[in-house]
Simulated scan of single mutants.
Amino acid sequence: MTAITTYPCPTCQKPATWTDNPSRPFCSERCKLIDLGAWASEDYKIATQDTPFSDELSENQH
């Protein structure tokens, strides 16, 4: 018998299975939609030292 491996859901941290889980890596469709909503409302940000189009601004100033 094979043990079922679980991973913490990225949204709620409850155990989520990878196999036969249409919402993976989330534990449920609800957690999947919560995460999608966070992306849509720009709650997740990736840090950068550059501002958008900063290379274009510096070229135009010369």
Results as ranks from 00 to 15, higher is better:
Ala3Val: 07
Cys27Gln: 03
Cys12Leu: 01
Arg30Glu: 09
Glu59Leu: 15
Thr11Gln: 14
Ala38Thr: 02
Ser41Met: 05
Ala47Pro: 09
Thr6Met: 07
Ala3His: 04
Gln61Glu: 08
Pro52Leu: 12
Cys27Asn: 03
Thr48Ser: 15
Thr2Pro: 15
Gln49Arg: 15
Lys14Thr: 11
Ser54Trp: 04
Pro25Asn: 01
Gln13Ser: 05
Asp20Ser: 07
Ser58Cys: 03
Ser41Thr: 09
Thr51Asp: 08
Ala16Asp: 05
Leu57Lys: 11
Tyr44Thr: 06
Leu33Gly: 08
Thr11His: 14
Lys14Trp: 06
Pro8Tyr: 05
Cys27Ile: 01
Pro15Ile: 04
Ala38Met: 10
Met1Gly: 12
Asp35Ala: 07
Phe53Lys: 02
Phe53Pro: 02
Asp20Val: 00
Gly37Pro: 02
Pro25Cys: 05
Phe26Gln: 03
Tyr44Arg: 11
Asp20Met: 00
Thr2Tyr: 14
Glu42Gln: 15
Ile34Met: 13
Glu29Asp: 12
Ile34His: 10
Phe26Ile: 01
Pro25Thr: 03
Tyr44Met: 09
Leu36Asn: 13
Pro15Asp: 07
Ile4Ala: 11
Gln61Ile: 01
Pro22Glu: 06
Thr2Gln: 14
Thr6Ala: 05
Asn60Ile: 00
Gln13Val: 00
Thr6Val: 07
Thr6Ser: 08
Ile34Gln: 15
Lys32Leu: 06
Gln61Ser: 09
Cys27Phe: 01
Lys45Asp: 08
Asp55Ile: 03
Cys12Ser: 00
His62Pro: 11
